[in-house]
Design a protein around this nucleic acid. Sequence first.
DNA 1: CCTGCCGGGCC
DNA 2: GGCCCGGCAGG
Length: 353
Amino acid sequence: MDLDIRNPRNQPELGQGHDTPPTERQPHSCHIPVPRNRKPSGHADKEVMAATVLTSLSTSPMVLQPSSAPTEPAARGWKEVLSASYSSSTSGNWSWDNSDQSVPSTPSPPLSNENSKNFLLSSNSDDISEDIHESTHFMFDDPIPRKRKNSMKVMFKCLWKNCEKVLSTSSGIQRHIRTVHLGRNSDSDYSDGEEDFYYSEIEVNMDSLTEGLSSLTPTSPTTVAPPPVFPSPLFDVPHSAHINVNGSQSHAPTLLSQSAPSTLCHIRTDHAYQGPVNPVRTVTTVERRLPAPSTHAAVTKTHALVTPATKATPGTRKPRGDAKKCRKVYGMEKKDMWCTACRWKKACQRFTD
DNA sequence: CCTGCCGGGCC
DNA sequence: GGCCCGGCAGG
């Protein structure tokens, strides 16, 4: 959990660096644990940069004094706003936007890296503050962390298909999703975090709003990305993953058989199928999702995984499946990532046919 | 030849 | 049971 940002080579072997400019957001709106080294960190350069920024932050009280922060140029538009928002959503529960409520009004003593990180991470001290440590890669998406701006306010946008609800609190949007979309009792405290999945944070520039920037309306093409793709019940994603307004869905169909896109979002769906075979492997909490409210093209042949294993009749060899097995997916050099059966030259238990 | 994995052996 | 591997079959 203690990701040493000064040691950016804390890179998972499956991690795919991405050189995408921060304003060109790529769809990696989820963070998925990677085996053994589950720090899906970003590009090393960005990490170094982020570390540098953190270091400077730790010694500079400026950032803690929003009143003294120079006003951002008006050119800062939704693109950048959303970029920041993107980072927050990518991180799961973090946001640069401190709004006005949680900004310390007095300078704090110099912060260590850890403290400064905590400070930043705690900015959005809503009820979605879990799992923050795993999400520290957020800042690597944004090479230059921006000073907080008073005019920025975090909003929460419902990503349910055809629902453009935007609320100011995560609890509110969760309640909305829970009651309106998930059909749960609003009185119930029960929440498996599923609601988290169906909304994303967006940052709202209140200044722009007052200037009549009606483009904030969720239907605005400048703020709204293509409809997010929700996971199907067969496509489990860690529950803290957030679909971002900017996230497109192109990453989803890659699954395992293709090289991961240039994102951190290497889809490790094998967790769900792993079962007790390989207890060493990181196990992602498998959650059952409601039927996807929108189309989901990602689930392809892995559907077969839920079907009963075809028992080969004795004497007849089981027809060779066309699914890529561990050997092909991971290669010989990553044999330790194979499922046990594959390592034993048995029928693959992860990528069954 | 590569790959998946059965069958069987060893511990 | 875990683990390994020869060898076969399919592509």
